[in-house]
Design a binder for these strands. Structure first.
Length: 446
DNA sequence: TTTTGAGTTGTTCGA
DNA sequence: GTCGAACAACTCAAA
């Protein structure tokens, strides 16, 4: 039997990797990663993060990981022919682009007498598998969650003995190893989170000032860690005292799986309204307001702090993702894909399913969407979830001279603008009413 | 087929 | 300052 190719994509790990097990079972393994210009064109920080993870994976494969660039539909069949492999193993892909791409790759391979072998997926339960009593996909989270849980998932496979074939020519990795990046770092981060931050997660997760989330989103996105591994560990966690925290973390994983399932059934919902009845809502899409939002100078400290964290870290706390998204959609009257695109360009953990459907939830166009009257007040949210103002001061130097919660309302404090912080670009109370009126107009026209 | 209960994350107003 | 009600109906899922 000849060698087989293991084409890594959203599964940059060796542990709990059924596709890699399948490749190893067939004999010698040649690992490859393809830099697809379609996915590598935007966002320098994201590329750097992927490249750092690849450097780690290359070490873990005894240097065997080969890097190629180009359209996978050409690169992969060429590579298979070059190394004499009849099988290319992958983790199944579920995103709209990934599915189209894999279809083209499979046809390219077939034309040279080779096969694309898909095993598993980046999810505990492969999207499309969870169905309701009448065989339809779920459109509401809670029943999905219940069914998803009872569907169950297999025991994580143990790491196979792999014979890597080294010495295949490829491209150099242009970035140095990133500290704290890669499969081992993700496993360590998960273990640390369970040990230090899981207790109280159910309530603390909402506090951006305390920073008590797992910070595993990018590792899950890149597949340095598989959610099945996480769920398996949670199931076996001994401490009953932490039951609410365990349940909450599991539910967050379930949300990720739910949105992947929703997107799988409706690929167009990545950039179009899932629920069409908001399509005739009047949006302003004012470029100047959008730019102010992107750059974190709306004059609402909590919103701006979130946007600046995104700019600086390529990550934003979940509470801020909701608050900033609500502000763009409800206060600035911007159609959600404008915001979703910006998030995707900046977020290291940017995942089309979670991102688009998180935005649609806020905008009221998605599955199980927030009621139209649920409009976040950026000041109230700041006072509630950043009560001492520490998060705002961390990201907005212009407000560091204000003590405590005063940073949330510089307009109420003498000298509040002495640091050069901008005035509010809109009046929340006014724009909230505008948003409500526009929803009412759509309703009455139906 | 019909019915029934329920649905992530909020805000404001008035008693 | 605290608390409950109103903000709308609609659709989904399951019995």
């Amino acid at each position: 039997m000849g060698p087989s190719v293991m084409w890594f994509r959203r599964d940059l790990r060796l542990a709990d990797n059924p596709a890699l097990c399948a490749a190893a079972a067939a004999g010698e393994v040649i690992p490859v990663f393809v830099r697809d210009p379609r996915l590598f064109s935007s966002g320098g920080a994201r590329n750097a993060r992927v490249i750092a993870s690849l450097a780690s994976l290359r070490d873990d494969t005894d240097g065997a990981l080969t890097i190629r660039s180009g359209d996978p539909a050409k690169v992969i069949p060429d590579f298979a022919a070059e190394v004499g492999a009849r099988q290319v193993h992958v983790t199944g892909e579920t995103t709209p682009y990934g599915r189209r791409r894999d279809g083209r790759v499979a046809r390219g391979l077939a034309s040279i007498g080779a096969q694309l072998m898909a095993t598993g997926s980046p999810y505990a339960v492969t999207p499309g598998r969870v169905r309701n009593g009448s065989g339809s996909p779920y459109q509401v989270f809670t029943p999905f969650h219940k069914a998803w849980k009872s569907h169950g998932w297999p025991h994580p496979p143990s790491r196979p003995d792999i014979v890597w074939r080294t010495g295949i020519a490829g491209e150099e990795l242009t970035a140095a190893h990133g500290a704290g990046v890669g499969e081992l770092a993700a496993q360590q981060r998960w273990a640390e989170f369970v040990a230090d931050d899981l207790e109280g997660y159910d309530t603390m997760r909402d506090r951006p000032d305390l920073d008590r989330t797992s910070r595993l989103s990018t590792s899950l996105k890149l597949g340095e860690l598989h959610p099945r591994t996480v769920l398996f560990d949670l199931d076996r966690h001994p401490r009953r005292r932490e039951a609410p925290a365990l349940a909450r973390f599991e539910a967050e994983i379930a949300w990720r799986e739910f949105y992947a399932d929703v997107l799988w059934h409706r690929p167009s919902s990545s950039w179009a309204d899932w629920k069409g009845d908001a399509a005739d809502l009047a949006y302003d899409n004012d470029p100047e307001l959008i730019e102010a939002w992107c750059e974190g100078r709306t004059g609402y400290p909590f919103v701006d702090a979130g946007m600046r964290q995104l700019m600086s870290e390529g990550w934003m706390h979940n509470r801020l993702r909701m608050v900033t998204a609500s502000f763009l959609v409800k206060d600035l009257h911007v159609w959600w894909p404008h915001g979703a695109r910006h998030f995707m360009a900046r977020l290291l953990d940017g995942d089309v399913a979670s991102n688009s459907h998180g935005w649609q939830w806020v905008a009221g166009t998605g599955t199980d969407a927030a009621p139209y009257f649920r409009i976040f007040n950026p000041v109230t949210q700041g006072l509630r979830f950043d009560p001492d103002g520490d998060y705002v001061r961390r990201w907005i130097p212009e407000l560091r001279h204000l003590p405590g919660a005063a940073v949330h309302e510089p307009w109420r404090h003498p000298g509040g603008y002495d640091g050069g912080y901008p005035e509010r670009i809109v009046d929340h109370a006014v724009e909230r009413q505008v948003a409500l009126d526009r929803f009412a107009a759509v309703r009455s026209s139906r």
